[in-house]
Design a protein around this nucleic acid. Structure first.
Length: 687
RNA sequence: GGCGAGGUAGCUCAGUCGGUUAGAGCGACGGAUUCAUAAUCCGUAGGUCGGGGGUUCAAGUCCCCCCCUCGCUACCA
C-alpha cells in the first residue's frame, strides 16, 4: 500500500550559516525520506527558512540592508549548502512569504475566535533612543549578584544568577549603549493551559519517543504557562490583524512555515493542501527536530493547530546534539565547522555515511570523532563496498565486454540471503535505527568479499576458466548492486554513479529482488576517494578563528548604516599591531627540496619544502612568472607555517612562502623571494 | 542547583525478560593473497563492563550511595 507522507525538518534561522550540527537533522531526515521514496511511497519533504524576529532585524540594520535582502541572501546560501549535501527537499520555502502570512493570520484568527487568546499588560525594558522594546539578550550590564561586567539581561554567565533585566546594574542597550527604561505594553497570550487535557492525550498517543514523554511529564506537572505571542514595533515579522504596531512573535509563524511550504508546493504541483493539513487528512505528518525545540513542537504547535481547527502531526522525532571529538563544538578548537567549510575539503557523502553509522531512533547525542570518521569511512565505504565492484568489474570488462552471466549463476544462496536481509534493513530505516541498518549492510559486504576470496577470479582467469570467471564476477556485481540499493538513501550520489555503471534506469527497493543477468555494465570508474587525514586537519585549521577576539560576536556598532557604506580608501600603511599579534604568525626557515611546474596552472609552482622539525610541506606558490623551478632548488626561504592549509584545484597547499612585490596588479615578474642568510637551518623560527 | 543522557577492549558501539568461558566493527600484531583506491582473507592479543555496598543460586543487566563526562536548564521557551 502506498502511504502518503509529509516530512519536515526544523526551519534553520536566517541569521546564521548551516553547520555540521544542523546537518545531523537534515541528513537524518533526508535519509528517511529517500528511504520512503525508494520504497515507492508518496513522500514529500518540505522545509523553509525561519526569517523573522529581532536578531534578523538588527543584523540587517547593522549591514545597512533591509531584512528582506538579508533573508533573501541567506535563503540562497542555505539552499546551496543543502543542495551540496544532497538534502533533497521537495520544497524549500520561507516564512517571509504570502502563504505563511495568510496561514499565520488564519491560525491566529481561528484561535482568537475560539477564545484562546488573552490580552495582558507586560512591563519590559525599553530603549528611548532606538525606540524599541529590548529582548533580554539585547541588554548588557553588570551582574547584580557577583558584579561581573557585560552580562546579558536575563542571566549571568559568570555566577549563573538569574534576574530581571531591570535589576541589572549599569544596564545598557546593546545596540546604542543608552540606559533602558521600563515601559508597559499590551501583549497577546495564547492560553496554553486550556489545552492541557488535549495535550496529555495527544502526547501519549504514540506521537513521541519515551524520553521525550518523560520530559513532557515534567512540564505538565509544573503547569502549562500562557505564551506571549506578540511583539511591538519595530519588529521584522507579520503584522497582527486589527492590532496596530503589533507583530506575531517569530516562534508563532515559524512552525506555520511547515504548512506554508506544503501549500507552496501544492500550488505548484497540483496537489491538495487540505489533504495534508485539514481535519480528515489521512496523510502521515512527521516533524524531525532537535531536542532543544521540543517545547514548541509538542505543546504550542499541536495546541495551536488544534485551536485553529487544523489536524495535528502524526509524530515528532527528536534527535540529540552533535559533539565533535567528544566535546561541544568549539570555535577555538576549530570544531565549529560550517557546512561550507566542510565542503571546501571533504566529500559530503563521507559525512552522510558517518552520521548514518551513528544515528538511532533515540534522542542520544551524536559524536563526530574525526579519527574514527576517517578510519570508518575509508574502511567501510572504500575498502569493503566500493572494492567489491573495483575488484570484479575489470574482469567483466576485459574478458566479456562488460556482460553479466545469463542466467544468474548458482551462488550457494548468497543472493537470496542478501535480498532477505533487506526486510530487516527496511525495518531499521523505518524506525530511524540507521546505525543498525548500516551494521547489517556491512556484515553483508564482508560476506561478499569472502565470496570473492573463495572464488578467486584472478586464478580463474589464469586458468582460462572463462565461464566460472564470468559467473563469479557476475555474482559479485549483483551483490554489490543490492548493497548499493540498501545504501542509496545514505549515499544518493554514489548510488547514482552505480546506477550508471550498471546501466539501470533506476535503483528501487523492490528491484533488488531480481538479479541482473545478461545485461552489460559500463567501464568501472572510481566511485569514492579515500579521506586523507590532511584534509580533515585542513578543515579544522580553516575553522579556527584567525584572531582570538573573533570568537565572540562583537556588539553592534552605534550607527552602522552610516559607517559601513563604502570601503575605506587604501591606507598608505597598515594600522599598528602588538608584538603579541605578530608572533601569532609562525614564520620558519624552509629549504626548497623540489620545485616543479603544475600542469594546467600558469602562475603556480609546486614547492616541496623541508621545514626541519615541522617536517615536509607542499606549498603552491604564485611565483612562476619570476622563477624557474631549477633556480629554486635547494634555496632557503621563509614560510608561514601556521597558515590554514588551502585546498586548491591542484592539491593541498600547506603554507605560504614570502616574496616581495609592488602588490596586486603590479608587474608579475618583479617578484622577489625572501631568503635566509647561509647558516640558517630549516625549521628555525623567525622572530 | 534542577532535569536528561551516559560511563563495556586503543577508538566507535552492541549487549534482549538477570543465566554457561562479556560481543562486533575499526585499529594493533602475525600470516596468506595480489583481482582491487596498500584494498581483501585467515588468525592472535587486548576488558575486575566508572567505584563501593546490597538483593540473588546467579548481575554489565535489579536496588542504594558515591565519582566522572556530556547536554539542556536555571522560574523560562
Amino acid at each position: 500500500m502506498t502511504r502518503r507522507i509529509l516530512v519536515t525538518s526544523a526551519l534553520p534561522y536566517a541569521n546564521g550559516s548551516i553547520h555540521l550540527g544542523h546537518l545531523v537533522e537534515y541528513i537524518q531526515t533526508d535519509i528517511w525520506v529517500r528511504f520512503q521514496k525508494l520504497q515507492g511511497h508518496d513522500c514529500l519533504y518540505v522545509c523553509a527558512d525561519d526569517t523573522h524576529g529581532t536578531p534578523i532585524m538588527i543584523r540587517a540594520r547593522n549591514e545597512g540592508i533591509t531584512p528582506e535582502a538579508l533573508v533573501q541572501r541567506m535563503h540562497q546560501e542555505h539552499q546551496a549548502d543543502f543542495q551540496a549535501f544532497a538534502i533533497a527537499f521537495d520544497n524549500y520555502h520561507s516564512t517571509h512569504s504570502e502563504e505563511n502570512r495568510l496561514l499565520a493570520e488564519e491560525v491566529y484568527r481561528n484561535n482568537r475566535a475560539a477564545g484562546h487568546i488573552a490580552v495582558a499588560t507586560v512591563h519590559q525594558a525599553y530603549c528611548n533612543k532606538d525606540a524599541m522594546f529590548l529582548p533580554d539578550r539585547f541588554i548588557r550590564g553588570t551582574c547584580p549578584s557577583c558584579g561581573a561586567l557585560d552580562q546579558y539581561g536575563d542571566a549571568c554567565e559568570h555566577c549563573s544568577a538569574t534576574y530581571s533585566p531591570l535589576d541589572l546594574k549599569q544596564a545598557a542597550c546593546a545596540l546604542c549603549g543608552e540606559k533602558p527604561v521600563q515601559n508597559s505594553s499590551e501583549h497577546l497570550f495564547f492560553q496554553l493551559s486550556r489545552f492541557e487535557a488535549f495535550l496529555k492525550e495527544w502526547t501519549r498517543s504514540g506521537t513521541l519517543q519515551p524520553e521525550m514523554a518523560n520530559k513532557l511529564e515534567e512540564w505538565f506537572s509544573s503547569g502549562l504557562k500562557d505564551w506571549d505571542i506578540s511583539r511591538d514595533a519595530p519588529y521584522f515579522g507579520f503584522a497582527i490583524p486589527d492590532m496596530p504596531d503589533k507583530y506575531f512573535y517569530v516562534w508563532l509563524d515559524a512552525p506555520i512555515g511547515y504548512m506554508a511550504s506544503t501549500w507552496h508546493l501544492c500550488k505548484r504541483s497540483g496537489r491538495d493542501f487540505d489533504a495534508y493539513w485539514r481535519p480528515g487528512s489521512t496523510a502521515e505528518v512527521y516533524h524531525f527536530i532537535g531536542k532543544d525545540i521540543l517545547y514548541f513542537h509538542t505543546l504550542f504547535w499541536p495546541a495551536m493547530l488544534q485551536g485553529a481547527g487544523f489536524r495535528t502531526p502524526t509524530a515528532v522525532f527528536a534527535h540529540g546534539f552533535l559533539t565533535v571529538n567528544g566535546q561541544k563544538m568549539s570555535k577555538s578548537r576549530g570544531t565549529f565547522i560550517n557546512a561550507r567549510t566542510y565542503l571546501d575539503f571533504l566529500d559530503p557523502e563521507y559525512l552522510r555515511y558517518y552520521y548514518a553509522c551513528k544515528l538511532t531512533g533515540r534522542v542520544d547525542d551524536l559524536d563526530l570523532n574525526l579519527e574514527d570518521f576517517i578510519l570508518r569511512v575509508n574502511a567501510d565505504m572504500v575498502g569493503k563496498v566500493v572494492n567489491l565492484a573495483a575488484r570484479t568489474a575489470g574482469f567483466l570488462h576485459k574478458q566479456f565486454q562488460g556482460q553479466l552471466s545469463a542466467p544468474y549463476p548458482e551462488d550457494g544462496g548468497l543472493y537470496t540471503t542478501f535480498v532477505q536481509a533487506g526486510e530487516e534493513i527496511a525495518q531499521f530505516y523505518e524506525a530511524r535505527e540507521y546505525a543498525r541498518a548500516i551494521r547489517l549492510i556491512m556484515a553483508l559486504a564482508d560476506s561478499a568479499n569472502r565470496y570473492i576470496e573463495v572464488r578467486a577470479p584472478w586464478n580463474l582467469a589464469k586458468q582460462n576458466q572463462w565461464v566460472a570467471l564470468q559467473e563469479s564476477c557476475s555474482v559479485a556485481i549483483n551483490l554489490f548492486r543490492v548493497l548499493m540499493t540498501y545504501l542509496a538513501p545514505v549515499l544518493p550520489v554514489m548510488a547514482e554513479k552505480v546506477r550508471h555503471l550498471l546501466n539501470l534506469p533506476e535503483l528501487s527497493w523492490a528491484g533488488r529482488c531480481v538479479p541482473l543477468s545478461g545485461s552489460s555494465i559500463q567501464e568501472f570508474k572510481h566511485l569514492m576517494a579515500r579521506i586523507d587525514p590532511k584534509q580533515v586537519e585542513a578543515m579544522l585549521a580553516a575553522s579556527r578563528p584567525s584572531s582570538p577576539e573573533s570568537a565572540a560576536p562583537p556588539p553592534a556598532a552605534a550607527h552602522p548604516s552610516a559607517s559601513e557604506s563604502a570601503s575605506p580608501p587604501p591606507a598608505p600603511s597598515s594600522p599598528p599591531i602588538t608584538l603579541e599579534t605578530f608572533t601569532q604568525v609562525d614564520l620558519r626557515v624552509a629549504r626548497i627540496l623540489q620545485a616543479e611546474q603544475v600542469p594546467g596552472a600558469d602562475k603556480l609552482l609546486k614547492l616541496t619544502l623541508d621545514v626541519g622539525v615541522l617536517g615536509q610541506r607542499t606549498v603552491f606558490a604564485g611565483i612562476r612568472a619570476a622563477y624557474t623551478p631549477e633556480s629554486l632548488h635547494n634555496r632557503l626561504t621563509v614560510v608561514v607555517a601556521n597558515l590554514a592549509p588551502r585546498k586548491m584545484k591542484f592539491g593541498l597547499s600547506e603554507g605560504m612562502v614570502l616574496a616581495a612585490s609592488h602588490g596586486q596588479g603590479a608587474d608579475k615578474t618583479a617578484l622577489y623571494l625572501l631568503a635566509a642568510d647561509s647558516g640558517a637551518e630549516p625549521g628555525m623560527r623567525i622572530q
